[in-house]
Amino acid sequence: MVMADMNQTDEMLEKLFETARCEVVDLPPGLLARVLADADAELAARTAPPLRAAPTRRTSGFMIVLGELLAAIGGWRAVSGLASATVAGVWIGFAGVGNLSLTTVDLLSGGETLAVLNLLPGDDVFALASDLGDFE
């Protein structure tokens, strides 16, 4: 290529570049909307609340369950009543009982007598009177 041709081609190239620089790009329909939708989606993803809120202070699972249980049965006052009853039961079981009345012995021994069980005298009232007489 001779020098004159090169110069002319250079000039042509510069004009083509200039035309290209001035070219206004028409955005295809929908492209800007898609770009903005992407921006909104990214924003929403960043600002969405976490699935589970983090606890404000560290609390063990056992303490959480204990707190819920206490609340269900009426709080620490109810627990103190339960504790007293439990201690009394343990003490009675450990110390045993002293002399029992005859009625109590009959009840605990399983021996059934008319004198013990028939508490509503009806037709057997005379038999009851007779038995009582024998008992004495």
């Binding site: 070219e23 790009v25 955005l27 295809p28 492209l31 800007l32 770009v35 903005l36 921006a39 909104d40 924003l43 960043r46 600002t47």
Partner: peptide, 22 residues
């Protein structure tokens, strides 16, 4: 936009989408 401003994204999209496409 990084701090959550949606309007800023709109301006950026208008400025830079044509550049990226071109």
């Amino acid at each position: 936009y990084g701090n959550g401003d949606r309007a800023a994204a709109h301006v950026l999209a208008l400025r830079f989408t044509p550049l990226a496409l071109r």
